[in-house]
Amino acid sequence: AQEYRALYDYTAQNPDELDLSAGDILEVILEGEDGWWTVERNGQRGFVPGSYLEKL
């Protein structure tokens, strides 16, 4: 798994998404072809927009 940093804040719109704060460090589990990536942070897993992340 790769570590990424959130570039922007994101507020989850659905229960299966995660909130992001700019600067958060996340582990990317799966890069979805639809642009939604499965990530894990502090034991929580959910979808976030891949375009909001940069690889560390």
Rank of each mutant, 00 (worst) to 15 (best):
T11S: 11
N14Q: 11
I29E: 08
A22Q: 10
L30E: 15
D24I: 02
L7Y: 02
K55G: 06
G46E: 01
V48G: 00
A6M: 06
K55A: 07
V39S: 02
D16S: 14
G46V: 02
A6D: 00
E17M: 03
G35A: 04
R45K: 11
E40F: 04
R45F: 05
E33W: 05
F47Q: 11
E54M: 04
V39W: 00
Y4Q: 02
A22Y: 06
L30G: 14
Q2A: 08
G35V: 03
V39R: 00
L18F: 08
T38A: 10
G32K: 12
W36T: 10
A1D: 12
P15N: 09
L7F: 04
Y52E: 02
E27R: 14
T38Y: 12
I29N: 05
E33M: 09
P49D: 06
Y8T: 11
L7T: 06
D34M: 05
R5K: 14
E27Y: 10
Y10N: 00
G43H: 07
Y8S: 12
Y10F: 10
G43C: 06
L18M: 11
W37V: 13
Y10I: 01
Y8G: 07
L7Q: 09
W36G: 04
R5A: 07
R45Y: 05
V39Y: 00
S51I: 11
L56T: 13
D16Y: 10
D19V: 02
L26G: 07
G46L: 03
E3K: 15
G23T: 00
S51C: 13
G50C: 14
T11Y: 10
D34K: 06
E40D: 12
N42W: 06
V39F: 01
S21H: 13
K55L: 09
V48F: 02
E31A: 11
P15L: 09
P49R: 07
E17N: 02
D9Y: 03
R5S: 06
L26R: 01
L26E: 02
P49C: 03
R45T: 12
D24Q: 07
I25Y: 10
L56R: 12
D19T: 09
G35C: 03
G50K: 03
K55S: 11
G35S: 05
L18D: 00
N14R: 12
E27D: 15
Y8E: 09
